[in-house]
Design a protein around this nucleic acid. Structure first.
Lengths: 229, 229
DNA sequence: CGCGGCTTTGATGTTCATCAAGTAAAGTGG
DNA sequence: CCACTTTACTTGATGAACATCAAAGCCGCG
């Protein structure tokens, strides 16, 4: 194991949230936290299970997802390193509202939830910071959900492509971390239409596409489709 | 003014949230809070304005809404008495993300946001309670948004009707607090289709409908349409 | 009383889901 | 490592659901 991760105080992956904790409090987290390595495809937790830990993504990529009432999977969000995961439901419910599955080999830290609650109770600055985070994550999900639902299918595909490029990979050229079917689950489309529109974008010279590999050739046109769609 | 509302300590409309505050802290809120009466149609705050207060609905009915990118209004949620309003964005942003407009004559309390933050900082139990509330409100909005988007138009209308009956009015017989156009803004439909399906429900004997007045005649059928739609 | 917004109904067109059928790719067990 | 099975991907054809357009009646309000 990368031993810079054994100690939360010096951990270079430490969340900004923890800046508000005292060295003493960080030590407590350090000694109780568990660092876990998971492989692509592994399910880290399942909706309905009781919450015991605060989950923090150190490296890799994961998805939050849940079954809809027809038994189909829906992807609620994709989390990237340094994101807190499942912050949403952490303080309002006893069970996870979403399942978490690794999209790539990933490293996660689990912090006991009671320890987090204790620090919220005794450390006001930390409490405010946690609230800020919860609000921001929720706002983001709500905003994205509205954005997706207001767009036509072309706009949705343009949105995920530009989001992957900007927010996750920081490059115009990347490998899709999810299948066409999963893209559909993320932006509420059938896999057929995901494929159709990706092919159309390729035909129109907007992107290169071969298997999972994507290269954005005409970013400004893609953004236009995203914004008008 | 109803003088039971002048003092937060004895206020019978007091939120459960405030149970966690000491009498001393409640007194502080009591002396700084402002109680405001607004008329149907009044806009209480506008998206983009800077946040100065924590808004609490004492009596009446209000809507949270925002402009979409085409300039059309979208209703994000309808709040009823004893609900905190705009809890969502309160700690993550400097400006309101949503506008608030009264659907009925309403009474609201405004508590200075800095005072709330102070109590979050110094009162751990209160902080946890606030977090629980924020999470619950967010979860609820996310859940409802997904629910609506997964339903066909008939299911959506059945959902609002049963929600109004159960959650807001507690009766099978009530007056719609919003126009057909606003129902459309709430569940993402054109006003034409809202009307069409309401008329269809009336034709099929599911509801009585005359102007704003609604009576649910066949609740079980309505719920079936909601759940299958 | 007349104007503008809300409501209602009908006709038309577009978008998207579904169905079907076939190809490619990726696991899996012998 | 290869045959086999399964899963992912792709394209086309069809139909249903819904938005849009149009026109007319209604209501509240200045």
């Amino acid at each position: 194991m990368d031993n810079r991760m054994e100690n939360c105080i010096t951990c270079k992956y430490k969340s900004q949230l923890f800046e508000k904790l005292s060295e003493e409090q960080l030590k407590e987290i350090s000694s109780s936290k568990k660092t876990v390595f998971v492989s692509k495809g592994d399910m880290i937790c399942r909706e309905g299970e009781s919450i015991t830990s605060f989950v923090y993504l150190v490296q890799g990529l994961i998805k939050l997802h849940k079954m809809d009432r027809f038994g189909r999977d829906q992807i609620v969000s994709i989390a990237k390193p340094l994101d807190f995961v499942g912050l949403l439901t952490l303080f309002s419910d006893k069970t996870y509202k979403y399942s978490i599955t690794a999209l790539q080999d990933s490293t996660l830290c689990f912090v006991d939830i009671e320890l987090m609650k204790k620090f919220v109770t005794i450390n006001g600055a930390f409490a405010l910071e946690v609230m800020k985070n919860i609000s921001a994550v929720s706002d983001d999900i709500i905003k994205k959900t509205y954005a997706i639902n207001s767009k036509n299918l072309r706009g949705r595909i343009a949105l995920v492509l530009s989001d992957f490029a900007d927010s996750i990979f920081g490059s115009y050229s990347f490998d899709l971390p999810i299948s066409r079917k999963e893209i559909g689950e993320l932006i509420d489309m059938t896999p057929e239409n995901v494929i159709r529109i990706l092919s159309e974008f390729r035909r129109d010279g907007l992107i290169n596409l071969k298997g999972k590999s994507v290269e954005i050739l005409n970013k400004s046109m893609l953004l236009k489709i995203r914004d008008l769609g």
